[in-house]
Design a protein around this nucleic acid. Sequence first.
RNA 1: GUCCCCUUCGUCUAGAGGCCUAGGACACCUGGUUUUCAUCCAGGCAACAGGGGUUCGAAACCCCUAGGGGACGCCA
Length: 502
Amino acid sequence: MLDTNIISNPPVRTRIAPSPTGDPHVGTAYIALFNRCFAHQHGGQFILRIEDTDKKRSTERSEKDILDSLRWLGLQWDEGPGCEGEFGPYRQSERSHIYKSHINQLLAKDCAFPCFCTAGRLNSLRKEQMEQKQQTGYDGKCLSFTKEEAESKISAGESYVIRIKIPAEGECEFEDKLRGPVNISWSQVDMQVLVKSDGLPTYHFANVVDDHLMKISHVIRGEEWINSTPKHLLLYSYFDWEVPEFYHMPLLRNPDKSKLSKRKNPTSIGYYQAMGYLPQALVNYLGMMGWSMPSGEEKFSQQEMIENFNIARVSLGGPIFDIEKLDWLNGKYIREDLDDDAFRKLFSEWAFNDEKVRQIVPLIKQRVERFSDVAKIGSFFVSGELDLNVVDFANKNLDTDAELKILQYSLWELEALKQWDREAIESCLLKLCALMELKIRDFLVPLFVSISGNVVSTSVIESIFILKLDITRARIRKGIEVLGGISKKRAKLMEKEYRAFS
RNA sequence: GUCCCCUUCGUCUAGAGGCCUAGGACACCUGGUUUUCAUCCAGGCAACAGGGGUUCGAAACCCCUAGGGGACGCCA
């Protein structure tokens, strides 16, 4: 076991640095929880920094969803967007001038170099290396330019990136505080791009600069970063900065042990909210991934976790995110922690909040004769997984294969939507229907059944809009599963066909 | 392919050389309570990946093998 006595001076500062490029991920919440507990246990601060240096994929909407999700879970940050401290701004897109001055320092020190290689050359280089079963990586072509040559290329307007120089030999040894020493040979480390051709920094560069400037003392992050730690350490040494402590947490896994992914599991925090889990139960559950209370108690609040936290007791085997146990824990919270009044309030807010009910009413109203008809046709709006059977999908105009395609392609369409509004949903589904050369009434059948549990129901497009993507995705997946599922091989073919016409 | 990390019941985990005949929880099974069911309670099933060392003593320390995972992007 490793010594984990923490010197409480300088102050402990940890951070979570999500990239706003998709749905808020439970893995983000998991890492956030451990960072927050560690910082607060030591009387330090937990910082939130938005890593939006990928201009193409970052969206405001995703950033907002991530912030909302973390707040919902009670993972409030001490410094970050909306909570400005003295080390802001906390959005990397607002810190460009900082990276610019820092990259100039590295260039001046000859620790980095401009690279003019095109994406095309890099791709074929990689391909070649793969074919020859070599390790992939930049070959250092642009290293041979003199400063003058490079400068004239730049002033001639050639597009370029800036890469880090890597020692030619030797190895990098560093200490992972959870595992002990790790050695990685420099020959294994790529000449990572630090600044992209759009002038924005990559994660590796911005992350190190910001961690230093924001006085991050302990970097607690996913295990996936172990291999890039040498690059980060090299930057610290080029800048002659003090190095933080590194703790690499195990990765959350799918039941098949692969890294938790939305292809195989619901990973969006919004899904768990939409399914009616309590935030404190979800956080508690994440806290038992790789960690346990010294007492063995499995139900604990975040405050109790902070009081009893000891990062040295994190176990390193990748925990499988097991929804069955989450369900049990959530039920325990509902039974033990909610009195009837609290249950009533939370449930009605979850199921019948004004916004949702306002959307549902016009759909339901025209189809009922008595209020007593409402529950029957509207229950799917307040359900999680539906009870479906293969016979529910029976249709004389479509075979199972066609239905599977409709479901899978529709899901891909919906997942690709930038904006979640009914017009966008309608037009992408209609477009798909036309491309598949199907009648709309046939096309919609598997969707109706998957989403509402019945061929006869309120408008499926409206329903999808109201249920939102997380629940829609789960229901379409269930539909696919009930229809027999899609094999890996089949999925590949489908993807190819889908790409061809979308 | 190269490198790195990991390995205790099906799953989450306890375990800091002797408290280990390996403990708890979920799931599953049995029984009890309950007008049904669920809850709740009691019990059961079930693991140290394999092989070598080190040691009086190994789940724990070391080595090898196997298995799993991750990284190898102008993504983070």
